[in-house]
Write a protein that binds this DNA or RNA. Structure first.
Lengths: 219, 219
DNA sequence: ACCGCGCCGATTGTTGACAATCATACGAGC
DNA sequence: GCTCGTATGATTGTCAACAATCGGCGCGGT
């Protein structure tokens, strides 16, 4: 074979991780609305596993902060108030700002490549007018941004925060910007990176987040 | 009774959370060195619970990134290389920097009060010369800093990062600054907050983290 | 009518047993 | 002598049953 280096250990996710991914996705898209109780028996039956692995998966989400547990009563999807919205976006700002700095002082070229691709997806979604697809692309863009920083801890944190962001959008009637504005907002980010203009980039990210907070304020 | 508002719901932690806290602490202090496998049967016997709750607790730590799982093989404490050290401190910088900003634009007085108390503990520890106590106080100070920001998500992230920080210190022969320097480093942070000098504060936090990275470099 | 009490179904918490997989040691074959 | 295949013990993954707790209902008392 031509290259031997790209051989990776065969991915073996644990059952708990598989289930956690599905649950996280369901929570993210609002399949389980905030405050909803997750009944063990019912979910276990649906996933066709026993309650053991399911409980392991749910404990992961508790640790992640997506579920809140009341002893002997059950696990519930967290509810998000205005304070949470602000907390989430400010935490994202902290993470993504650092990611931007790392990108600017790291492999900028690769980041531009990946983000340009993510931006293309966003444009496609915007043209389709599908809000769901736009949100997906938006989320993917920001995750790509953090991934490009090369800091796996930032990436993990961003992942959770993006899920919570999506919960806000689902819960708060999706106060989303116009498609063309959404694209423009992200394009200028890529441009700033490509131009190597760190100061501008950091200002843009900050506006991006702070604007989102006020946009979602009058829930 | 004089005040009724301070009544809190009786704390009912789940068994998984209790166990997770103990395990996290053990990992943090290096009781389980990086790379060590956590044997279920042995730990379950030690905690005097069955493997069920123990596994739930361990899944929490996996989600937290403190354990790495290999299917059908077991769970292992993550190992930390030089890259991880940098990742951890830069992630901390992201979090704590934002915490500083929130404090400066929020309830500065309360923050100064809490941090001054934490600083006092640090001084006491420094005077005792006990490295362990100094690390504890150092960690408590930084956690207090993030807690004062009032952002629970930042707080949760900081908690995990501080555990990892401690792992670095334990693994890398505790390349720790001199006691008086440690105290000074933190005192100027409190001073900057008290003075309301945000720019200085942010610069200090950044130095604090970046210096730590280079200090731990020649492992 | 209202409050307290106790019962009952339902759900969560926990356990021990069973199945599947892995790591190691041993022996056969080349 | 080395490699490959196999048996074995140990550990993880999964499950179904048991125990404990919760929420709601009805009953009796005041």
């Amino acid at each position: 074979m031509s290259e031997l280096g790209e051989l990776e250990p065969v991915a073996r996710q644990s059952t708990a991780e598989l289930i956690a991914d599905q649950l996280r996705s369901a929570i993210m898209y609002g399949v389980f609305a905030p405050g909803t109780q997750l009944a063990e028996a019912e979910l276990a039956a649906r996933f066709e596993v026993s309650r053991g692995p399911l409980r392991e998966a749910m404990q992961r989400l508790v640790q992640e902060g997506l579920l809140r547990g009341e002893r002997h009563r059950g696990l519930f999807v967290i509810d998000l108030d205005e304070q949470d919205v602000a907390d989430i976006y400010l935490a994202r700002l902290a993470i993504e700002r650092m990611a931007c700095e790392l990108i600017m002082h790291g492999n900028r070229g690769e980041a531009v490549a990946h983000l340009t691709e993510a931006l293309t997806e966003l444009v496609t979604a915007a043209e389709s007018g599908d809000r769901h697809a736009m949100s997906d692309a938006d989320q993917a863009f920001h995750l790509a941004l953090v991934t490009c920083s090369g800091n796996s801890r930032l990436e993990r944190m961003a992942q959770t925060l993006l899920v919570e962001t999506r919960m806000c959008l689902a819960a708060l009637q999706d106060h989303y910007p116009r498609p063309q504005d959404l694209v423009a907002e992200h394009r200028i980010l890529v441009d700033a990176i490509a131009d190597g203009d760190e100061e501008r980039l950091l200002g843009l990210i900050e506006s991006h987040m702070r604007d989102s907070i006020v946009r979602l304020r009058p829930a």
